[in-house]
């Protein structure tokens, strides 16, 4: 049970008919996705989250939600996949992928805190707000 979970995480363990405000936290299986590999196709992630590399509205949201350290204590493994033409850079200039990945495996905001992550970059064509 994660007692300090935000409502957006609590709803994953919300029973039918239960009031969100009455939930004590986010209840999840002790395995937490251990042994499962999640490929996140987004703008990559910034594992160390240096603010200086972030330059968009998404990044500001991401910084606020991840408190600059979301991936430092992640339990699963982290791998990067690159297209043959891509430079092997471990960063996320946009911040969107950093934020969404934290919602998968981040110790504070992740739904499957022990899953393994593979980071894959795709090119966005439209902006979306979280």
């Amino acid at each position: 049970m994660q007692q300090d979970a935000r409502d957006e995480l609590k709803i994953f363990s919300q029973a039918r008919g239960a009031r969100l405000s009455a939930l004590p936290g986010y209840a999840y299986d002790a395995r937490g996705g251990q042994g499962i590999t999640v490929y996140v196709m987004d703008t990559r992630i910034n594992p160390d989250h240096p603010v200086s590399t972030l330059n968009s509205q998404f990044a500001l949201v991401s910084v606020r939600l991840t408190h600059l350290q979301e991936f430092r204590n992640m339990q699963g493994s982290l791998r990067w996949l690159y297209l043959p033409t891509e430079p092997h850079i471990k960063s996320d200039a946009v911040g969107h992928g950093t934020c969404t990945t934290s919602k998968v495996v981040g110790p504070a905001f992740g739904v499957a805190k022990s899953a393994n992550i593979v980071v894959v970059k795709i090119q966005p064509v439209v902006k979306c707000l979280i």
């Binding site: 490929y39 987004d42 703008t43 690159y82 969404t100 593979v118 894959v120 795709i122």
Partner: peptide
């Protein structure tokens, strides 16, 4: 996008993770 799918599919196949892999596309893409 197709190229990205290709490397993901190849990685899953190479590690025989077909029953243990989840692919999330969390960004609108071409």
């Amino acid at each position: 996008m197709i190229d990205a799918w290709g490397i993901v599919a190849a990685d899953i196949a190479s590690k025989d993770m077909r029953a243990k892999a989840v692919v999330l596309i969390t960004l609108s893409s071409e």
